[in-house]
Design a protein around this nucleic acid. Structure first.
Lengths: 255, 255
DNA sequence: CGTTTGATTGACACGAGTCAACACCAGTGG
DNA sequence: CCACTGGTGTTGACTCGTGTCAATCAAACG
């Protein structure tokens, strides 16, 4: 089986005890598949339990009165749809799958158990929530102050790092099951301009994007181009080697 | 004296007991003044305690390598600079005053006391944090999918509501101690274009902005113009004042 | 008073949006 | 087996919103 992506993510923050791990595993045991482009939660809903993505891509999004859409976050394996539904009375945005997904529905009680009886998990969940917020801030900064190509490059770097931490990316590549239209709704551009931007990144040799498969020939170069500084992901030191041109430890990819 | 803005805000979520209120009051007792345009926390810092704004305007911001700046949030009376510094090892952004501020430094222990021995406060703080995140999402949506004038109008509506809940705005006006340059860094535009946008809003009679004082002659009209739907602020029903009946009209419209 | 910072205005350039046409599949059904 | 379809990617021509540069004003300040 695939190692639990949530576990991988949380342990990136701090090591968990065996008992902690068991609880996390148990919470994500019962999962269902959801096909692509399906709403998991809609604005106005008050979901009864917490959804956890185990495989596939999903996104938070808002629809605007004029029909426009803005994607607010990508949810990848190990990410929660909404940890805190208990507090707010209703969702102020929607969540939908982008690709086919494996989703676990974690009952409220199990979340409470995790947070009340496993302080380390509680802290790690706190951390995950804060990182989500930090990502939001980084996107906002990108939207406001970066041009199209930088912003796309930055996004690709972020997804590389995030997917690597849960074992869904190699050293320099991953599957990005997102159409150009969806990318446009993510970075706040038109689909046409996203297309031109991707062409430009390709022409500069910064990315190789065929279908849904993204390869980054020179990760450091793309990071420099996109002004990507991973500090906001709060991952601490890379687990083994990561940075240099010679980092060759490749994550095993089971998906 | 002035009722504690934090208390007002938290009680907008749920009523607190007298003991709860006393603790909140105590936490915000020792405050200091900070002059305008002063960093409270810098990126990379690990602040020892939590800062609470009691008066004035502050902002979160990020500086980009090219010198650009993006303001990520406005902090108004009742807002925390960073409730969760305990978890993350360092700040990924900075916080600065915009106007002269009154700031309380709340020691970590007092936060722990509030959250561990006063569950209602804990829930209310949770709520405040989630609302901050929701505001961030709304800004992202605005940045990505609204044009300049809508976005500015939306921001003005948001600040009206937020300031009203802490008693720093009248029915239709408030002090906005923010220069056009800072506004530009907020909405992701150039200062020149912000100026033109403000002219346009003025010309349409949507706002009266002289110096730092903002008056909104017809609040509902501005809300409609900016497509402002306050649901993301999760304030529940309006507390009783005259704002009620029209707010729902806006919500209907955006459905 | 100069100095300085912020607001305002105009001329011009450029990035990004819009519209439209076409190519390229993958799926569907006749 | 092959038209037909709808969604996605690609391109070009044109428009328009916003940025840039620069000059001028206005107000705050020592």
């Amino acid at each position: 089986m695939i190692p639990n992506p949530l576990l991988r993510k949380l342990e990136r923050f701090e090591p968990l005890s065996e008992a902690d791990k068991a609880v996390v595993e148990r919470a994500s045991r019962h999962a269902r598949t959801v096909e692509a482009r399906t709403d998991l939660i809609r604005e106005g809903n008050k979901p009864a339990d917490v959804r956890l993505i185990l495989d596939g891509f999903a996104c938070r999004y808002k629809l605007l009165p004029d029909g426009g859409r803005q994607i607010l976050a990508y949810l990848v394996p190990g990410d929660f749809c909404d940890l805190h539904v208990f507090i707010l009375s209703e969702m102020d945005h929607s969540i939908a799958t982008l690709s086919p997904c494996l989703v676990a529905d974690i009952p409220r009680e199990m979340i409470l158990e995790m947070t009340e009886q496993h302080p380390k998990i509680a802290r790690a969940l706190w951390w995950a929530t804060l990182v989500d917020e930090a990502v939001l801030r980084e996107w906002l900064a990108g939207m406001g102050r970066r041009d199209a190509s930088q912003q796309v490059a930055h996004l690709f770097c972020e997804m590389l790092v995030r997917l690597q931490t849960v074992g869904f990316a190699t050293e320099n590549s991953y599957e990005l099951p997102v159409s150009q239209i969806e990318l446009a709704d993510t970075v706040g551009l038109s689909n046409v301009h996203v297309n031109r931007t991707l062409q430009e990144l390709r022409a500069q040799g910064l990315i190789v994007l065929k279908g849904k498969s993204l390869v980054i020939p020179d990760v450091d170069r793309l990071k420099r181009f996109g002004e990507f500084n991973p500090n906001y992901l709060h991952l601490g030191p890379a687990p083994r080697s990561a940075r240099g041109q010679n980092a060759e430890e490749v994550e095993r990819q089971t998906a």
